[in-house]
């Protein structure tokens, strides 16, 4: 919807979530056959706090990444935003609507794509599902023609449109799923693990497409993924969820500032050195001659580097930020948090 977009300086709030809670009741079964029999008669239920007091706002045109370990509450949040789940408490607004009411006016303005579920008709070519979605969303003919040729070109799927879906590869199918979901030009797009199971090349293509789509149509996108690569490449803003709570919401770059208490010295030596002596500089996390990787406290990184240069036969030295994957892993495991 290129024409529906507004000036950058008057950012419109598209999604608002305030103190969202979603608790599930899960029944507990004791181990073994006896436990199974017992659970037939009496079932113990326990509350699982899938989402526990989450708040955030997302403006028009933002591309936000949701990250967190399995069961952190990412998908639950996304499902609540799509109207599939009824919140236990809290407020959820998408384009001013309450998604849980499942009003067609809202449904025509967003789309949900789940990497592990498909809406395409398995035994028919993808273009048949496109036509069905055109009718379901009541997309006018002209608009449909324009959108589909644009999407087909962006994703390069011209040749596979007439092939039965079940004969397509996972990557090709995922591309078609995206087209099916985007035909009605949704203003808001929820992507749940869109690159799951894809090979590296296809992952890259997907990312390029999502980025391109976001920029071209100024649509608001929330993306969940296990792959840091997706988030690193696509999202300026990330929301990290763990155990149902938001542990970080902000620029990706700020995660490093906030959580990394160390830097990485990566060194190439001119000749062999004693590994034990290197321990004076910092924690040696890898040493295969002629290369070594040393972890040093963030504040002292320059001094430690100077010391290294003075006392060792250094051929090359780099001071690096730790990889973001590692930082996030540390955030989740709860250690080394600054």
């Amino acid at each position: 919807m290129a024409e529906g977009c507004c000036k950058l300086d008057e950012m419109k709030e598209v999604i608002k979530v305030k103190n969202l809670k979603k608790y599930y009741q899960v029944h507990q079964k004791e181990a073994g056959l006896v436990g199974s029999l017992k659970s037939l008669v009496v079932r113990k239920y326990e509350d699982v706090k899938a989402v526990d007091g989450v708040s955030f706002k997302i403006n028009e045109g933002e591309l936000v990444g949701f990250i967190g370990p399995n069961g952190a509450g990412k998908t639950t949040t996304l499902k609540t935003l799509s109207g599939l789940l009824y919140p236990t408490s809290g407020e959820v607004r998408v384009l001013g609507h309450d998604p849980y009411k499942r009003e067609p006016e809202l449904q025509k303005q967003f789309a949900l794509v789940m990497g592990q579920k498909n809406q395409l008709w398995w035994d028919l070519p993808a273009q048949e599902t496109f036509i069905l979605n055109k009718e379901i969303y009541e997309v006018p003919d002209e608009h449909y023609q324009k959108t589909i040729s644009e999407l087909v070109e962006m994703l390069e799927i011209e040749e596979i449109l007439k092939i039965q879906v079940r004969k397509l590869s996972l990557g090709q199918r995922m591309k078609c799923e995206l087209v099916a979901a985007l035909l009605h030009s949704p203003k808001v797009l929820f992507l749940d693990e869109p690159t799951i199971g894809l090979d590296v090349v296809m992952q890259k293509k997907m990312r390029d497409f999502i980025k391109d789509y976001n920029q071209r149509f100024k649509s608001t996108i929330i993306l969940t993924s296990h792959y840091m690569g997706d988030v690193k490449e696509l999202c300026e803003r990330v929301i990290i969820i763990d155990k149902g709570k938001i542990v970080f919401d902000g620029q990706l770059a700020d995660i490093i500032e906030k959580y990394a208490d160390h830097k990485i010295l990566s060194v190439v030596f001119q000749r062999g050195v004693q590994k034990e002596k290197l321990a004076e500089i910092g924690e040696v996390t890898g040493y295969t001659y002629p290369k070594a990787v040393i972890r040093v406290p963030r504040q002292e990184s320059s001094q430690r580097a100077a010391k290294l240069l003075q006392n060792f036969p250094v051929a090359d030295l780099n001071i690096e930020e730790p990889p973001i994957e590692n930082i996030i892993r540390e955030v989740f495991t709860g250690k080394d948090v600054a």
Binding site: S82, L84, A111, L112, M114, K117, N118, Q119, Y137
Partner: peptide
């Protein structure tokens, strides 16, 4: 399978 979800979000 949860495939129902993709119907429920469509009009």
């Amino acid at each position: 399978s949860g495939g129902l979800s993709l119907f429920l979000v469509r009009p």
